[in-house]
């Protein structure tokens, strides 16, 4: 379980300060998929960086499974907006790097079997010896996912993971994420600026306000979890609710 208690995050640059969070609290249950949505620059990504242990809060406490987070946890997988792949490493080496820097023997048959299974699961078997620069956006996203999953994380953080993908690739990646979340019961916190994506993927949706970021509203979305949900009446109802919270105005008619 993730617990963020009375956290403040203040960026200081050139003697001026920007308060991103002040007295912010949040809880995420194990196995939950939390979608964070809010206006641009409201601190959605900063929250992920705090949870990842990459930006310690100025005040307050972040705990995951009862342990304070002050630096990156080995059990947290973090997929950044531009995927953070290393262009000089092949797909195979990118995926195995996490194991390597943790001192594991990456040449063992077990690791390679695990790698091959993962590549198969993510439909990128043919890209093993290629470099990130030779891949499409969707393939890079899958490699970034594989790189996190091979470390068997208990928490997956994703920062606008599908924002630079075309519509069809985005849909296929959303389906892939849903199946991974379902099969691995992985606690997931996802930042997105896309309302439909938040409703499709998030079992809970947190709508953030402008800086200093607060919670404009919280929507429980228990029916999320399958691609078919996209075509249901409930999906459209939920997207209208999120849109209303984001804009502060009532919207009538179709939300698509």
């Amino acid at each position: 379980m993730i617990s963020c208690q009375n956290c403040a995050l203040i960026y200081t640059q050139n003697k001026s300060s920007v308060i991103v969070y002040d007295n912010f609290s949040l809880q995420v249950e194990t196995g939950e998929c939390l979608a964070l949505i809010g206006p641009s620059g409201c601190g959605k990504s900063s929250l992920l960086y705090m949870l990842a242990g990459l930006r310690p809060p100025t005040r307050g406490l972040i705990q995951i499974n009862g342990r304070d987070v002050t630096s990156p946890r080995l059990e947290t997988g973090f997929i950044l907006q531009e995927y953070g792949l290393f262009p000089w490493l092949t797909v195979e080496k990118n995926i195995l790097l996490g194991l390597k820097i943790r001192g594991m023997n990456v040449s063992s048959p077990f690791d390679h079997l695990q790698l091959d299974t993962l590549l198969e699961e993510l439909h990128i078997s043919g890209t093993k010896k290629r470099y990130p620069g030779q891949l499409s956006g969707g393939q890079r996203q899958r490699v970034a996912l594989a790189r996190s999953l091979i470390l068997n994380p208990d928490l997956l953080l994703m920062d606008e993971p599908f924002s630079s993908l075309d519509a069809l690739t985005r849909e296929s990646m959303q389906k892939l994420l849903l199946s991974i979340h379902k099969n691995r019961h992985l606690t997931t916190v996802l930042v997105t600026h896309n309302i439909e994506e938040a409703v499709l993927l998030g079992t809970r949706i947190l709508v953030l306000t402008s800086l200093p970021a607060g919670i404009a509203g919280e929507i429980l979305n228990p029916l999320a979890g399958s691609p078919e949900y996209r075509n249901s009446e409930e999906f459209f109802r939920q997207t209208r609710r999120v849109r209303t919270l984001l804009t502060g105005e009532e919207h009538y008619g179709s939300s698509s």
Binding site: Y49, A52, L54, P72, L74, T76, G77, F78, L80, Q81, E82, Y83, G84, L85, F86, L97, G98, I101, R102, R147, L151
Partner: peptide, 20 residues
């Protein structure tokens, strides 16, 4: 982002020299 990605994988500061 490349450095953050490395740290998020569990990379230590001294390992950054060789790996990144």
């Amino acid at each position: 982002e490349t450095l953050d990605s490395f740290y998020a994988l569990g990379g230590k500061r001294h390992q950054t020299y060789f790996h990144v």
